[in-house]
Write a protein that binds this DNA or RNA. Sequence first.
RNA 1: UCAGUUGGCUGGAUGGCCGCUGCGGGAUUGUCUUGAUAAUCCCGGAGAGGAAAGUCCGGGCUCCAUGGGAACACGGUGCCGGGUAACGCCCGGCGGGGGCGACCCCAGGGAAAGUGCCACAGAAAGUAAACCGCCUGAUGAUUGAUCUUCGGAUCAUGCCCGUCAGGUAAGGGUGAAAGGGUGCGGUAAGAGCGCACCGCGGCUGCAGUAAUGCAGCUGGCAUGGUAAACCCCACCAGGAGCAAAACCAAAUAGGGAUGGCACGAGCGUUUUACGCUCAGGCCGGUUUCCAGGCCGCUAUCCGGGUUGGUUGCUUGAGGCGCUCAGCAAUGGGCGCCCUAGAUGAAUGGUCAUACACCUGCAAUGCAGUGGACAGAACCCGGCUUACAGGCCAACUGACGCU
Length: 118
Amino acid sequence: MERLKKRKEFLRAARGVKWVTPGLILQCWHRGDDDCSRIGFTVTKRVGNAVVRNRVKRRLREVARHDKAHGRTGFDYVVIGRKSTIPRGFSELEQDLSGAFRGIHGKVMRFEGNVKKD
RNA sequence: UCAGUUGGCUGGAUGGCCGCUGCGGGAUUGUCUUGAUAAUCCCGGAGAGGAAAGUCCGGGCUCCAUGGGAACACGGUGCCGGGUAACGCCCGGCGGGGGCGACCCCAGGGAAAGUGCCACAGAAAGUAAACCGCCUGAUGAUUGAUCUUCGGAUCAUGCCCGUCAGGUAAGGGUGAAAGGGUGCGGUAAGAGCGCACCGCGGCUGCAGUAAUGCAGCUGGCAUGGUAAACCCCACCAGGAGCAAAACCAAAUAGGGAUGGCACGAGCGUUUUACGCUCAGGCCGGUUUCCAGGCCGCUAUCCGGGUUGGUUGCUUGAGGCGCUCAGCAAUGGGCGCCCUAGAUGAAUGGUCAUACACCUGCAAUGCAGUGGACAGAACCCGGCUUACAGGCCAACUGACGCU
């Protein structure tokens, strides 16, 4: 799983499907090719100062590192940190992410199925 | 022991497991120019701050082609001496203010160069001025006396109640501030009108590198405040910033159209053309001068590009220790050390153990929360702001004991 690095790719993922959990928000964009899955992290200034933002981003990155099973090839994912990411327990965050992956994949399939019907 | 002042240090600890980014070494594989490069793995070691922050000053460095002189504009600084690469910083001193004291605070040049402003209140806010009051003179009324034709007239009085003319800044009242302060004399009442002391100005002497201080003589009250109002004086100062800038790869453009001005002179070669010289134009905020560089100039319109990598990038006005000079800031000498370099941006996640903090139960234990302010982005020197708790040193005051 590689990292997203360009602003354009983040903006493209923000136009895709979104899934909200208590500890984080997951966005994804189905590229449609067979390259490996990619993931990026976003924490806005509303969450806190630089120290808090760094801490949120590190916990999210660590959670994503532990969860290697759910990312699918051909997908770009963006994880957005929230103020609630800091007080949330680490195992709870792991459950949030794996649940978000399962939910968002189902949502993408339904969305693409609707597109094919149209 | 308590209260306080100043300066400095520290900025969560220990361990297990799993990661991230550089660096050094090694192995395997691929490539080729055979010692380089790319990928993967292993080992070792390193990896946020005192403010990394605010971006407020001063520098280094890079570009604006470069260097220098003069004037002006804009901007900044402002007691004196020293330190420094430099500063608006630091140290020492002076002056003023505060504190019993250790000590602290000060945007601290010029207000007799000029202009402006001083709300409200108040009579008056700066060529002083007369509201109340005080004083003098005249006078009305009053009162008294004399005369009388009984209407009044004349003389005196002027404390009290008025009017007019003048004097007065002592007192009252207003204000942030009322044209030196206190006392004595003086005066009709008063006033630097005179005197003493204090304050202020000038001159002289002494001490000090100087700011300034002390002493003497003298002047005479002349000089209200405000320069963080304009201003004057002295000194300093070109602009933009690492998204600077350079290189590599890809892409490309010193792109096109229209109009205006110019397309000059001389020489050489082979009359177009090219080269050289002169003239002309452009080159830091403006003007100008000197050296120098560049070459058609200019206006309007149209279209396109602005991505990736490498360097810059961490050895520097660098730290630590000893020593010498100095009251100190700081400087000299000697020795040792190398200590983050990311770029959607590493420096962490998690668990355990004690240790602080807070809350509750409740009573010195248990449970829960959970670790001050805060995250490098080219690098230094400062300033400012934020900061839980802990430690050290020197000094001051009070109380007690010896």
